[in-house]
Write a protein that binds this DNA or RNA. Structure first.
Length: 225
DNA sequence: AAAGCATACAACCGCTTCTAA
DNA sequence: CTTAGAAGCGGTTGTATGCTT
């Protein structure tokens, strides 16, 4: 039999509508089946992704709130690139969304941090016209770091690994750390009550002694029940 | 106004894990 | 217990849009 070729690329409104219809009919489990019976020329995998990341009715859209921002930050410091796990703690957000968010926003902050830390910028933390900081010289031969979310790297891009190492090395002082990385939201974070952490997660929490982030946030709050 | 660059986000790919037979 | 297919996950890429020069 000649299998009709599968479609790729952006979804049309009609495809979306069709997928929603069939998911409502058959539930959001049997994706290969849904792909087949719906007549969509998409793979089950593609259907699932579209549903999970875009069509699901519980999805929140729009900008991350400050609360969500700091949640992402905190959970990432704890779990690394476990996006789906992080996403479970942010109702209405998807792993893909968080992953993208982290890449763009956190990298930006990290770049600022790098600039601030760069010896060439000495004491002035925001050298308005600081001439070409050596971002390009960062070695690219490393394996992906724990914090590196991967993706396209252009010449200007800072190696996240290096940055985080810098930060770590730059002393275990959490106040410095927190302010330099995430200044605005972090302040807010420190005096607000945290999100609830379920028992299961709590018991899984491993806090490496060297991890300043972890020790700060969690021992500080110590999950009052 | 236009070209080039940066950013944001949707979607795909390939590997791993789960589950049912 | 084994295995094949399905589902899940993280990484990567493509592209539309906004911003800067």
């Amino acid at each position: 039999m000649v299998q009709e070729e599968t479609r790729k690329g952006p979804w049309t409104e009609q495809e979306d509508a069709q997928l929603v219809l069939y998911v409502n009919l058959f539930g959001d489990r049997r994706w290969d089946f849904i792909a087949k019976v719906s007549g969509l020329k998409r793979t089950g995998k593609s259907c699932r992704l579209r549903w999970v990341n875009y069509l699901h009715p519980d999805l929140k859209r729009g900008k991350m709130t400050p609360h969500e921002e700091r949640l992402v930050l905190e959970l990432h410091s704890k779990w690394g690139n476990r996006w789906s796990r992080i996403a479970r703690k942010l109702p209405g957000r998807t792993d893909n969304e968080i992953k993208n968010y982290w890449r763009t926003h956190m990298r930006k902050k990290a770049q600022e941090k790098k600039k601030a830390l760069s010896p060439s910028s000495s004491s002035s933390s925001f050298s308005s016209n600081s001439p070409t900081i050596e971002f390009t010289s960062v070695t690219k031969n490393n394996e992906c770091s724990f914090y590196d979310t991967g993706g396209r790297k252009n010449d200007f891009e800072v190696d996240m690994d290096e940055i985080w190492k810098d930060i770590e090395v730059s002393e275990g002082n959490c106040n410095i750390l927190c302010q330099t990385i995430v200044s605005p939201t972090w302040d807010f974070f420190q005096d607000s009550s945290l999100w609830p952490i379920d028992k299961e997660e709590q018991s899984k929490m491993v806090l490496p002694v060297s991890d300043h982030f972890n020790s700060f946030t969690f021992y500080n709050q110590e999950m009052t029940g």
